[in-house]
Design a protein around this nucleic acid. Structure first.
Lengths: 336, 336
DNA sequence: CTGCGCCATGGCAACGTTTTCATGACCGGC
DNA sequence: GCCGGTCATGAAAACGTTGCCATGGCGCAG
């Protein structure tokens, strides 16, 4: 019964070999007789010994750890991305260190980075070119997930094409008075917010339809506010496209409370494929956050091992998930 | 421009002091002249130097890292718990290492624990007494979050009281035909599933009402199946209490698709305060997952520093969140 | 039969910190 | 004015691993 936790020395004694040999076996290095290898494995197992990444990292300079920074783990979306990241990193033999930026103005500062992780994955965080360089000096390879920076390792979706596709979906159903609910914080809209709104404008312009946008704070409350505004118009829209499902949920609530039936009176569409969207039968755009995370994790692992160029950019496809919250506008419906 | 990352040696040179002094300053140890302290701080700052937790952990035996194991980060709930954990640990100067168990039969085996973390937090994972002891040997203090083991450090909510309260809420509205939707996997119901169902039985028995339970696989699909079964009964329930919001969402969808109005025809209540519950106006029980995580993180930090006994048990309160999905049953409604 | 080379193994330094101990300066009291 | 004590500082050992080099045994070719 070991007092605290066994060291490599104990394993060596038990297997009657030297430290070097134990190290070689546990590292999978060649040059060890099969019989000895087995003996060491057994000894390590019996002591339930595992190599201290602390000590090995000290020598090799690699920590087997990747730092992941998310705005917060609270919203569904980042948890899903982190999940994909965790799986990919785990498969690559890397541990995942998670930090939450929590809207700190410069989250790049208070991370204990140097020597502490082999790479950094920033999820849905805006990073300036300057910050990127700084992080690279400190933490090694940096991967941007859900954001992008020209010439830098990034994994992202085509937000613009996503909303354009969503808008087409509504246009194809016969809608023309399609309102768009975007969001912005005090610092203005995020890159992805702007891209999504641009996609909407693209599609509307292409169809020759009049764009109609409102912008509110993020979250369900924004959606609720936006719907209040839209419904008070003399001729309300027949379809509403929300920047995100989060916003769409708020919009949905406001519509239900106002007695407006979805999709009969107004079609509602979101973006993200939120967990709740399935329950609500909300038509949405699936951006596969878990796949996003997985791709980013894979990329980070590859960068650590130098298996891919550091300017690799991966664009993930999005997919429209048609459900019951969108339908042809009532005025144009053909007889039953 | 440092080639890779500066070491303590570089800081020492720059501040013209010895390694020892730098270490003392950066560690906040006493016995350094204020003027020198300032000089070292400045030097470290200019080199954007941060102590290698790898090396310091090697000497102190403490890693400043806590391993967190969750079943998966994908579901909303665990992300929220992890969020609270992250904040609490960060405040205590600890980094958070996240692992996903992913339903592995014995997740306690493939964690690279020894020497690699100061403590372990297991979230909503069943741990046998034997596993607990094993983990303790390997990883130091172990905290159970959302589960409990007698005499072991745990943070949990009173599931039983939660569902009992929820049932009372429905009883108080005048319902008597109250069905309960529980869940079970192939291994049977989890501890918390069992506790929740017990709370329901408690309240029904106390009120002299006939219990009516169905048990399905977890998730929205289970809720959907359950509702199908309940509605096919000759005299369906007037209220349905679901083990979790996740299940309730599926139930809600099935009800909506069947044209059953909520709450007019059937009252529906969940448990968890899922993000989507607010959007759906679903009455639920808030178990404050973020607070759960925060308490667990705080406890883990305290255990690491020996500031609390290792058998500390914290029970967090739950709170009913009344929303629009529950109302008095139609038959008994008094005239408007 | 001898000698060369390869392979398995062990010894030792080094990684970047903390910690303990030693050194020396300075201050105050008798 | 001398001595003991306190305080700031520096030197060196140790932490648990890996990487390099040395050693010795064995097989095979000449």
């Amino acid at each position: 019964m070991p007092k605290r936790s066994a060291g490599m020395r104990d394993v060596a004694r038990r297997a009657e070999v030297s430290l070097s040999t134990v190290s070689r076996v546990l590292r999978g290095a060649p040059g060890v007789a099969p019989e000895v290898r087995e003996r060491v494995r057994a000894a390590a197992d019996e002591l339930s010994y595992a190599v201290s990444r602390n000590a090995s990292g000290l020598v090799t300079g690699r920590t087997c750890r990747v730092a992941v920074v998310v705005p917060s783990l609270r919203p569904w979306f980042f948890g899903a991305v982190a999940s994909g990241l965790g799986h990919a990193l785990h498969a690559a033999g890397l541990d995942m260190l998670v930090h939450q930026a929590d809207g700190a103005e410069d989250w790049t500062r208070d991370l204990p980075l140097p020597h502490n992780s082999d790479a950094l994955v920033a999820v849905a965080l805006q990073v300036t070119e300057e910050q990127y360089a700084h992080l690279g000096d400190l933490a090694g390879p940096v991967v941007l997930a859900g954001e992008e920076l020209p010439g830098r390792a990034s994994v992202f979706i085509d937000d613009r094409a996503g909303t354009a596709g969503a808008t087409h979906h509504l246009l194809n159903l016969g809608h023309t008075r399609i309102a768009y609910i975007g969001t912005h914080t005090e610092h203005g809209p995020s890159r992805s917010s702007a891209a999504r709104m641009a996609g909407y404008h693209d599609a509307m312009a292409e169809a020759g339809a009049e764009p109609w946008t409102v912008s509110k704070p993020p979250g369900p409350d924004g959606g609720e506010l936006a719907v209040g505004e839209l419904l008070s118009h003399q001729s309300p829209p027949t379809a509403v496209l929300a920047e995100s499902d989060d916003v769409a949920l708020g919009a949905y609530r406001a519509l239900r409370r106002s007695g407006v039936r979805v999709p009969e009176a107004i079609s509602l569409m979101g973006f993200d494929d939120h967990d709740a969207s399935a329950a609500l039968d909300l038509t949405t755009v699936d951006q596969a956050p878990e796949a996003l995370g997985a791709a980013a994790g894979q990329l980070a692992a590859d960068l650590v091992h130098g298996r891919r160029p550091s300017d690799t950019r991966i664009e993930l496809p999005v997919q429209i998930v048609p459900r019951q919250s969108t339908a042809a506008p009532q005025e144009r419906r053909t007889s039953p």
